[in-house]
């Protein structure tokens, strides 16, 4: 069972190890993500979060251990990374190899509330709008696994709240497995089925917020303090 590959899982990592020279960034990491499961990954800087995402997204395949990711995989980055010289609609539709690319891109844009911006240049968008385009661009690829690399980190608090609701809606609508990397414990607790804590290249904690949604901050206080403890932060 430990070495068997379950084809149904969105992600199955066994003994994933990544070294940069002498430094071990991921240290025998095991991770399973069920289809449609929303997992949040917390960790300090340098805990290996970004490296893990690079492995899952296929950007880094020089690793030891077993990596099984069932695609398609799509990703939204901390900076939206839109092509500034292509209009919003093209940013969403480019790289989609299907005849109706433009139509599905338009639909994705209206899902993130930007139907009227399809002709806009990316550099004229606000931070929140650009991040929504980036989300639309990821979702239009109909991923089985959606990787979110601190996509709300650079947004102001109010925009972030709107984005949380949007991500929650889109996740329920499309049902991809999600791995959300974040620094924000509250964000993780509000959105995820399962919250993982990464430290020194290993998963050192796993927490399950209450099942009901939307979640009320009051019922998360205890879990929050446990995760903080897990991260090595003592109040």
């Amino acid at each position: 069972m430990a070495t068997g590959v379950d084809q149904d899982l969105a992600v199955q990592l066994t003994g994933l190890t990544k070294r940069f020279g002498e430094r071990t960034v991921l240290d025998g990491l095991d991770l399973r993500i069920a289809p449609g499961e929303f997992v949040a990954l917390l960790g300090r800087s340098g805990s290996g979060k970004s490296t893990l995402l690079r492995v899952l997204s296929g950007l880094d395949d020089e690793v030891d251990g077993d990596v099984h990711v069932s695609g398609p995989v799509a990703m939204a980055f901390q900076e939206p990374r839109l092509l500034p010289w292509r209009r919003v609609l093209r940013n969403v539709s480019l790289g989609l190899h299907r005849a109706d690319a433009e139509q599905v891109a338009r639909k994705a844009l209206s899902e993130v509330g930007l139907a009227t911006h399809e002709k806009a240049w990316p550099l004229t968008l606000s931070g929140g709008e650009a991040q929504r385009v980036s989300l639309a661009r990821a979702l239009v690829r109909e991923p089985r696994l959606l990787l979110l690399d601190e996509p709300f980190g650079a947004l102001d608090a109010l925009t972030r709240l709107t984005m949380h609701r949007l991500v929650d809606e889109l996740w329920q609508l499309h049902g991809p497995a999600v791995l959300l990397v974040t620094h924000d414990i509250d964000e993780a607790l509000l959105l995820a089925d399962r919250v993982l804590v990464l430290d020194s290249g290993r998963i050192v904690g796993e927490h399950r917020p209450p099942v009901g949604r939307p979640r009320r901050p009051a019922e998360l206080t205890y879990l929050r303090s446990r995760i903080l403890h897990n991260l090595g932060v003592t109040a």
Partner: peptide, 19 residues
Amino acid sequence: KLIEATRVLGFTRTEQILH
């Protein structure tokens, strides 16, 4: 960073050069 992003998003090499 744009090259990386477009790689994850499934651009072909030609599309990367062109766009």
